[in-house]
């Protein structure tokens, strides 16, 4: 019957609207469900995943030594050309042999897409991804970084 269907339509429509309103009403009254994170305020408690790919860093130990031999695997693996390694030849004091070493390890953070292929390619685990993300600076030149520290040398035994 037409009238019956008409009323049934209205009733089911109102019911469906009321279900939605009940749900939003629940969230309006239950503030413990709020999931907002207030970023600059929670900086101290912010825990980033340890694998987060934020930027490439080169860990140095206490003796200012790193594990980079200057093999340029990372430079070849990088799809964007954001790594440039300038090598030099050190002369070993004892044997007098010439040995390849890095002079400057240049990292273009402004070109990097954080794909992690350089870390994957490195045979000596000299570089890794650091979980940092606050990279914004006012001068673009600051994004070009030198990763090996001044006076650092390759750790003994790393070939």
């Amino acid at each position: 019957m037409f009238i019956k269907d008409y009323i049934k339509d209205i009733a089911s429509a109102l019911k469906s609207l009321a279900t939605g309103m009940k749900m939003t009403g629940y969230y309006f009254t239950h503030h413990k469900e709020i999931i907002t994170e207030q970023y600059p305020d929670n900086r101290d408690t912010l825990v980033l995943a340890e694998r987060f790919k934020g930027e490439v860093v080169m860990p140095h130990d206490d003796n200012n030594e790193h594990a980079c031999t200057g093999c340029t695997s990372c430079e070849l693996a990088c799809p964007n050309g954001s790594i440039k390694i300038i090598t030099k030849f050190d002369v070993d004091a004892e044997t007098g042999k010439r040995k390849k070493a890095i002079d400057t390890w240049i990292y273009h953070l402004d070109l990097c897409t954080m794909c992690g292929l350089c870390v994957e390619a490195c045979p000596t685990n000299a570089i890794k991804m650091a979980p940092t993300f606050e990279h914004s600076v006012f001068d673009r030149n600051k994004l070009v970084k030198k990763l090996n520290e001044d006076g650092s040398k390759v750790r003994a035994g790393v070939e």
């Binding site: 939003t24 969230y27 309006f28 503030h31 469900e33 709020i34 999931i35």
Partner: peptide
């Protein structure tokens, strides 16, 4: 504020 609380946000604060 109403919108924020319904949308499980904090809203202007």
């Amino acid at each position: 504020k109403v919108a924020a609380w319904i949308q499980i946000r904090l809203g202007p604060n």
